[in-house]
Design a protein around this nucleic acid. Structure first.
Lengths: 191, 191
DNA sequence: TATTACTGAATGAACGTTCATTCCGATGTG
DNA sequence: CACATCGGAATGAACGTTCATTCAGTAATA
């Protein structure tokens, strides 16, 4: 197996196992086994488990961003842009349930808290369409005048919830239901 | 120390430590130490750690339910009832941040998934005001015609989010902000 | 004294990480 | 071409630590 392949196998195995069983239910030995490499090999690519997890999240973000921004038109009305982003996000989660489950784990962990802090304070990479959209929406009085964090909660809290319910089999999302759910989120944030 | 006090001390210590450090960051030995009892004593009151965690959640639910239902008037309009419940819930979380953090941990774990399944399918104790309110709201065409699970997500997803943001210090909730946030959630679920 | 409650050191399983060793393709040599 | 040498990649047994749980002994209680 080529060097790059090994790394990819490790990433794939880690994503699968962490998504399925959580950080603490996915020992390094198990990840190594599923990746088809020795336990020590992982440490040739990642300093330790924490670093591996953060790197994994970063790669996920990189993969998902283009999918969500695909077809996004900054010149369209706020409402349309909002609907586009939220719809794309649900579709992404449904299409990649492993990604969703990993992201969920990540957000509900100390890593996730730090990440959210960076996002909200904007201390990291400013290329955030969501934040831009919300700030513009507030200043142009199209959206309710809330702190950004609350707009995030109103917009994405339900999205994460319905995605989880779908993935766990509590509901069956289809295009119509998705559209109506996203519209409901818009009702929450619009003025 | 009396027998009942010991149990209470264990419950208190477990809640504190799990809320602060998560399930995996709160070893039984540490819980015992903070409770001022021997490590083995915990096992006189709880069969094992899993059982203790589930029992802890049950007790939290029992404590919080009366607080949230206090002043709830089933005869009032749906909107008022909704605002009452959601406002009470935010206040509860803010007033008892340890409870919030424990509940958050719990929901994002296999226990929480099982619990949600029971809630949605109604296979457990039917005294659930939320479910009643939503079902009534749908049938009387006051609320959007969504599966119950989605209404839960629209109503409580943002609530959990803003509570977390407040507890973590990302935002500073006051009565006005709470009222406006809850109103926004109502916008999401109302027809 | 008989019974029950409590204790905390002991236990063994599980974990992340390390490191002495093996492996293997590239390079050098005759 | 055959063979020897080399060096980084890969390995997985072993290590030290941490944890939930147990249990033999002690204290409290009746």
């Amino acid at each position: 197996m080529a060097k790059q392949d090994k790394r990819e196998e490790i990433v794939r195995a880690a994503l699968e196992l962490i998504a399925e069983h959580g950080f603490h239910g996915a020992p390094m030995a198990m990840i190594a086994e599923r990746a088809g490499v020795g336990a020590g090999t992982i440490y040739r690519y990642f300093e330790n488990k924490d670093v591996m997890i953060m790197e994994l999240f970063r790669e996920l973000e990189e993969r998902s961003y283009p999918l969500i921004k695909e077809g996004y038109a900054p010149e369209k009305p706020h409402r349309e842009r909002f609907l586009h982003l939220n719809t794309a996000m649900i579709h992404y989660f449904i299409e990649y349930p492993l990604d969703y489950r990993f992201i969920e784990q990540f957000f509900n962990s100390p890593y996730g808290v730090a990440h959210r802090r960076d996002k909200l304070l904007g201390t990291k990479g400013g290329c955030d369409v969501f934040k831009e959209l919300f700030e513009e929406g507030i200043s142009q009085q199209v959206m309710k005048d809330f702190p950004i964090a609350i707009l995030f909660d109103l917009a994405f809290g339900p999205i994460l919830g319905v995605a989880r319910d779908h993935i766990l089999g509590f509901i069956e999302l289809d295009d119509d239901l998705i559209a109506r759910t996203v519209e409901a989120c818009w009702d929450a944030v619009k003025r």
